[in-house]
Write a protein that binds this DNA or RNA. Structure first.
Lengths: 343, 343
DNA sequence: TATCAACACGAAACCGTTTTCGTGATTGTT
DNA sequence: AACAATCACGAAAACGGTTTCGTGTTGATA
């Protein structure tokens, strides 16, 4: 087992000082050509690589960024993560991933773990628990310490930091408007509990579209699904009770399940009922009929978040005092497939 | 902006030595009650947290584990990742995630990045590129340096390390056998290119089941799908040409797509054709009809890999020379749903 | 009263780098 | 020949901890 070789080893072996080795490997012109070549050759031969930890300690920067997401088995977060990873790696950063599992406590623990020097900055989406509790002290502590933080998708106004969001309300508005323009009049909304601010935004867009087109707002057509195991039955009953010609669902799972329940009742999609979901993932593509869906462009969102964070980190190192935080908006787009009327 | 407080700060403030502070915070009984209380109170007040990087450098252990997976937007890897993260966090380890994107080069770069002190051990599944190239030198370098490595799912015999695999061949065998026992005779196989050793194993099980039940092996019923964008058309044509009463697919995407093509031809599932897929993900659950699927228990696989790795890491620290590597087998199970005959 | 533990704490080395500041040797200048 | 400037390198501090090994003080014992 070959142990890792250090500067000290090279220095001892070649009978020079550690500083000389360090400089030689950096190609400093303080060192003579001869010595540099000798040292570089030796280092190459023994495959010398500087120890990241020591460099981190010395430089007070780790080139790691911490990502905390509520759930990894979730298409949207997964694509965001990929976007982050892609951009970060491109800048020489590693990504340390933690999953909060929608729990406030886990979120706090993970942040504390990482905040003690392991990372140069955070990218995160708030867990459901945190949004419910409305306690953002752990985030404030982090920013108070001067650690850059970027929130995405599930954000809050209570914390001053960079943010990346999508135009949820507008996307929902456009989706509903499109269905109305195709003559749909009784449009249902399947949403999740309101403390997810994204659901709230989407509902907002739904109401706005109805109002603008003078359609009655019927609360019976709005189903708020709790985050539980018998979701499925609840939504099945819902579709038996209401008489509708279109549905907007706040995610693709709800949408696919809705299509199934409707089909079981003998309804045709899209002839009898049009369906639009959010989250343009694999389900939307492979459902039958394939699902018209609001694409959230998670990968772009991740890249954007990573860009904001890296910018902030590097700015910090140049002491550019510039405490103006940015919020970037990713524009969702509607991917039309078979579950809605073709134009 | 409150800067992070260090041992030195506390020592200066309280007019004691750094060593005293360090010991007091560790509750060493070398320090008097009075002094300890004073120091601990001060530390609590100023919310002192030791710097992870400094500890890592001193202890030569980072409490980080590196995970390299080929793709994050993939249900199976996602669940494995979650299992790893869950177990690792339970032991106080963080997970650094890198995505190789199925590329040999990215895999190498990521490993080198992490191997220089950032992590205590690796968990990974080989990228397609690496399996194609059959070049495992980067893995060997890592193990040569004494860095523990655990391979999962996509493994190779060429590297001596701990491994976690599933009984792919057997699972495929059992799936096909089940269909045969229900009277199915013309069973197709949809697989991907063979350099993914998992596909190979699954095909192996398929052939074995046919042979054992004296069914003819008809290569026309085997479709090897290339990893391309017009996969879909190829499989559509395939189903138009063959006359079958069952299909085994090596993943759930192929399976759902197959069902769709079959349904478009007017075939009923499972009455006319039974379908079984691999990877029991969200698609299998939400497809209609819902898909009978081989569950790979990714989360368990991840936990197992993490357990093996952590064991190995901690053993290393106790210098237990024990170079016997283990291979754990996760037993896949078949989740029966609507796409096959109910028993 | 001299001796000796036990006690409570500090000095210093160390982990592997980077970086500043000397310094001895060589070279060039007058 | 005396001096300055340049060159090539080394010593040492620093990053923030942990840990070993003193050491001065105290109280008990012979």
């Amino acid at each position: 087992m070959k142990r890792k070789i250090t500067l000290k080893d090279i220095a001892r072996e070649l009978d020079v000082s550690i500083s000389t080795v360090s400089k030689a490997l950096k190609n400093s012109d303080e060192i003579s050509r001869d010595t540099k070549e000798k040292i570089q050759a030796f280092a190459r031969l023994y495959n010398y690589r500087p120890n990241n930890i020591a460099i981190s300690l010395k430089n007070k920067r780790t080139k790691n960024i911490g990502v905390i997401i509520p759930d990894i088995v979730h298409h949207f977060f997964t694509t965001v993560f990929r976007g982050i990873e892609k951009y970060a790696n491109g800048c020489g950063y590693n990504v340390i991933a933690c999953i909060s599992d929608e729990s406030f406590d886990k979120e706090v623990i993970n942040m504390e773990m990482l905040a003690n020097g392991s990372i140069d900055g955070f990218i995160m989406a708030l867990s459901a628990g945190t949004q419910l509790k409305k306690d953002y002290n752990h985030l404030k502590q982090v920013t108070d310490q001067g650690i850059p933080l970027v929130l995405f998708d599930r954000v809050t106004d209570e914390v001053a930091c960079d943010k990346v969001v999508i135009n949820d309300a507008e996307a929902a508005y456009l989706a509903v408007k499109k269905m109305i323009q195709h003559g749909r009049k009784r449009i249902a909304l399947l949403t999740s509990e309101a403390h997810f601010n994204v659901s709230e935004k989407r509902a907002e867009g739904y109401y706005k579209a109805l109002k603008e087109h003078n359609l009655p707002i019927d609360e019976e057509l709005v189903l708020v699904l709790p985050h539980m195991y018998d979701e499925e039955k609840i939504s099945e009953r819902f579709f038996q009770q209401v008489d509708i010609d279109a549905v907007l669902c706040v995610n693709e799972i709800y949408a696919v399940r809705s299509m199934r329940h409707l089909q079981n009742q003998g309804k045709r999609i899209p002839e009898d009922v049009a369906v639009i979901g959010f989250t343009d993932g694999i389900l939307s593509r492979l459902a039958s009929p394939s699902l018209t869906s609001v694409a959230q462009h998670g990968e772009l969102m991740g890249e954007t978040a990573a860009r904001l964070l890296v910018d902030r980190i590097e700015a910090d190192y140049q002491d550019l005092e510039e405490p103006v935080y940015r919020t970037e908006v990713i524009r969702a787009s509607i991917v039309e497939r078979e579950s809605t009327d073709s134009t």
